[in-house]
């Protein structure tokens, strides 16, 4: 058994690095499936992270902390909805505004909390099962949010493709005029999808500040929100592939950390570029087949809906 045990800490850290991306990616997937492109994921992750961290430090209650993260993310997403859905602002510009705003607001809220340590989110231990060598700690010894992220991915996949609600959501994203004329409330459904995306990003942010690195630092998301957006293109808007992609990126992030720790003779800054460069490479590989993107992307994505009647 000793031959594979070195891999346990690596697998464990891959999971923690991937989890925020799963949350943010799955949430944004639902938003995009409804035909809305919210580029503010980075901002929503940040406010989620700071809201959760502040709540955890003040109350010590992790359940409340995660809920606060979700609420903060959903609130920011609601603002995005007011601008793009009710006031018909450009989605790209508003998403950028959301990120810039989120960076500022989170820095303001978190300024008195920089450098304060907090206990990491407790790991669950399924009695008996988590003692199994290798598989035990990896599969059965994670914190609750890891399981929640995978559960949410499965739930979203089931909702989108196996329920009537999912069908309506996709219809709104693929043809808002048709959905409107059948009588569905395009704007209402999109508000829900956008806020769900925000809440999920908020939980992803909470995971960053409570579990991945249990602390708060300005801009601590370091571009993960944007990587989550790239993941969705990579996954051609399929929930299962979003999870696969998130774990791949988690792997790349952890690989470079371990390479640094192992004293590989490459400067740390160059290794740190890897996740960003990998994102670019993956985007290029997926996007070059234009017809595949067009086939899978929601047809109304980014388009403004204004009922003529």
């Amino acid at each position: 058994m000793s031959g594979v045990e070195w891999i346990i800490p690596i697998l464990l850290t891959v999971i923690t690095a991937a989890t925020p991306l799963v949350f943010a990616g799955i949430g944004e997937l639902v938003t995009e499936k409804s035909g809305v492109l919210n580029l503010g994921v980075e901002g929503m992750l940040l406010v989620g992270a700071v809201a959760a961290f502040v709540t955890a430090t003040v109350t010590g209650n992790y359940f409340l902390a995660v809920a606060a993260g979700a609420l903060a993310g959903a609130f920011l997403a609601f603002l995005f909805g007011v601008l793009t859905l009710s006031l018909m602002a450009n989605q790209v510009a508003t998403g950028l505004a959301l990120t810039l705003f989120g960076v500022g607001v989170s820095a303001l809220i978190g300024q008195d909390f920089v450098g304060i340590p907090v206990d990491a989110l407790p790991k669950l231990a399924v009695p008996g099962l988590s003692d199994i060598p290798v598989l035990g700690p990896v599969l059965f010894g994670q914190d609750a949010l890891v399981y929640l992220s995978l559960f949410m991915a499965a739930l979203v996949s089931w909702f989108l493709y196996r329920t009537k609600g999912g069908l309506i959501l996709r219809a709104v994203g693929d043809s808002h005029n048709a959905a409107h004329s059948i009588g569905y409330s395009v704007i209402g459904i999109r508000y829900l999808a956008v806020m769900f995306g925000g809440a999920m990003s908020g939980v992803g942010g909470a995971y960053l500040s409570l579990a991945y690195t249990p602390m708060w630092a300005e801009n601590m998301t370091a571009g993960r929100g944007w990587i989550a957006l790239a993941l969705i293109v990579f996954a051609t808007w399929k929930p299962g592939l979003v999870v696969v992609g998130a774990y791949m990126f988690g792997g790349i992030t952890i690989l470079q950390l371990h390479a640094q720790a192992a004293g590989l003779d490459v400067p740390s800054q160059i290794l740190s570029m890897l996740p960003y460069l990998a994102t670019v490479v993956v985007l290029v590989l997926i996007s070059k087949d234009e017809s595949r993107i067009r086939k899978h992307a929601p047809a109304c994505i980014g388009k403004i809906f204004h009922p003529a009647a």
Partner: peptide
């Protein structure tokens, strides 16, 4: 950090008013 909030808010309000 108030500077960042202020800057973000300007853009937010501008996009809202542009309706």
């Amino acid at each position: 950090a108030v500077t960042g909030v202020f800057q973000g808010m300007v853009l937010f309000y501008l996009l809202a008013c542009d309706v």
